[in-house]
Design a protein around this nucleic acid. Structure first.
Lengths: 123, 123
DNA sequence: ATTAATAGTTAGATTATGCTAACTATAATT
DNA sequence: AATTATAGTTAGCATAATCTAACTATTAAT
């Protein structure tokens, strides 16, 4: 089944944290998202079952190949949407917050249209 | 507490159905949203408790003053977002579907920015 | 007026996703 | 080595929102 907003948030969090450090732990994800340890533990278990997340030999959390593809997809939505909102005059914080929610609800078709428009006119 | 996506969908459905007929029943809402009768019954009960929905003397479902204000707010988001997506080249069906989801997750600030842009450049 | 159809409600199950409390396991400090 | 701190897991609760099954109430038809 397709991932819910919640699952996508975890995947994106792991992706973003991995950009800074390759040693991502559950607690880091919880701090980043503002969730408790048990919530993270449970969510990671589900994502592991779906083959999107794994633990490396040292116990650090990694995205699988499939998880990474998904993460990049979500993260691209995030950056493009944020930029679009900023271009429209929205302050950066609000733009980022809105992108963070909207990125989970936009179809491929609409996102591609937005992306094409941004490529043409956006910065 | 603020309404969830689900509650906003019911409010919007009642609003849209009311535009065609003032005699809106639970079953009509269920048909419109694709939900079962018990789901509608339960949801309307909650919305009634929150003072957004009422039944008129004949038992038909009406929005209260507060419900109507909220409905107009959501519906405006819906029309403006749909139009924006269409302007970007998205087909009408996809644009409408996406607007239907996104409308619940966009902040006032970002929506006002989109609206201003559409007024200037959009149709 | 009885029957049949339609609308609405109640009861209870399910799924998703958060939480706290309490436990275990691992790492760091003295 | 023993204590303390940190990280992770398990168990169980809560909320939101859907569903089906079964019941009630109302409306329509013969």
């Amino acid at each position: 089944m397709a991932l819910q907003e919640s699952g996508e948030m975890y995947i994106e969090a792991i992706y973003v944290l991995s950009l800074k450090s390759s040693a991502v732990r559950g607690i880091d994800i919880g701090d980043y998202l503002g969730y408790s340890k048990p919530s993270v533990s449970r969510a990671l278990g589900l994502l592991r079952n779906e083959g999107l997340v794994k633990k490396d030999s040292e116990g650090y959390i990694k995205l699988t190949e499939a998880g990474n593809i998904l993460a990049k997809r979500i993260y691209e939505r995030h950056t493009v949407l944020s930029q679009m909102f900023i271009n429209l005059g929205v302050d950066e914080e609000t733009a980022t917050e809105d992108a963070c929610r909207v990125e989970h609800y936009i179809s491929d078709k609409t996102f591609e249209a937005i992306k094409a428009h941004m490529k043409k006119y956006g910065s």
